[in-house]
Design a protein around this nucleic acid. Structure first.
Lengths: 192, 192
DNA sequence: CCACGTCGGAACGCAACCGTTTCGTCGTGG
DNA sequence: CCACGACGAAACGGTTGCGTTCCGACGTGG
């Protein structure tokens, strides 16, 4: 029977090593060292660094997002932005996510894991929020959920994970207003 | 006299190694191997991997962006989005940029280099475009250039460098329309 | 109470890379 | 035409990590 406390210590050590050195430089030896555990304990559980990381990341990322229902599109968008900002402000996430995304460009297994963890959950939430707005008449039906996700997630991700600057007061409110305007803007020629 | 053709071969090899393996896994030995060059030739030019990468990236990134002047805010935004999309579609850039951004979270030197290369040049362009729009009366004066940059760059970066999905036809047009709406949206309570 | 399996620790042989040094070759500037 | 310096190649000793194996200690389930 594998000891669960040790498994958990290894999982935590993996996250810390990922944040500190990135996937490329992360070594099993360093993970075991940080967890205060023999290398044997790690290899007894996972066959490779890739499987180890995929398992740990999957375990962390399964938190599903509650669908906001504030009664207005702008309120829902503001709610989503707040949740995304909180998630991206977690120091561990801010270090690890960009690193794994970069690694995903080379590694289909990691790409698939992140695809499932990041995009799919968000996609359904956005679709729901757009649907509610359409039902209230705030949006024409059949809005582009892919574009909407880009509009909602992109600016905040850029700001917090890429540029890494702090958020001024009212930033999220301003961004929610701007994003809502973007979502309600009429499409271009082809279907209008 | 250092031979310039060899310097150039090393620079190219660095970009290719960065794309293939990332900064963390990139080794001087592999760079020299790929360039068909002795390790000595590399160490004669740069003292460390960090300096090497910073020099190479700086050299590549100095391309300054022409400021669009189409006569409308939406036209200018569309023009910028096209340029950003073209830059982000370059396979080398798409592999290297996210990787270096992740590394920048751990390495102040790289962070500073990218800050100068990416954000500063874009910042001035956005400020100019907003100024022109304000002069035409399309925008209230004193718009938030930081927020504007996030709105313009974020969704495309998310789409092309993070989610890495292809762009549907008319995507850039739709995005330009949405982004323009976002830029012209009124701010929130504090100054309105 | 005993046997099994996990534990940490240490060592294995192997590979990659570090940054430096030495060597003989080549080509170019003075 | 000659000396200087950059060139590629090879080897240096040292470090780190790989994945595996063996060990004695511990503790828990049967």
């Amino acid at each position: 029977m594998l000891r669960e406390d040790i498994t958990e210590a290894i999982r935590l050590a993996v996250l810390e090593e990922l944040a500190a050195h990135g996937y490329g430089r992360m070594s099993i030896e360093a993970v075991a060292r940080r967890a205060g555990v023999g290398k044997t304990a790690v290899y007894r559980r996972w066959p490779s660094k890739l499987r180890l990381v995929i398992d740990v990341v999957s375990a962390v990322a399964v938190q599903d997002v509650a669908i906001p229902d504030t009664g207005t599109l702008r309120g829902d968008v503001r709610d989503l932005l707040g949740k995304i900002a909180r998630a991206l402000r977690d120091p561990l996430a801010t270090q690890i996510v960009p690193d794994l995304l970069a690694e995903a460009a080379r590694n289909p297994d990691i790409a698939r894991t992140l695809e499932a963890a990041l995009r799919d959950t968000q996609q359904s939430v956005v679709t729901e929020v757009l649907g509610n707005a359409a039902a209230r008449g705030e949006l024409p039906a059949g809005a582009d959920a892919d574009l909407a996700l880009d509009l909602i997630t992109g600016p905040l991700y850029w700001r917090l994970a890429v540029a890494r600057t702090t958020l001024p007061a009212d930033y999220l409110d301003d961004l929610a207003a701007a994003t809502t305007a973007a979502l309600t803007a009429p499409r271009t020629t082809r279907d209008g």
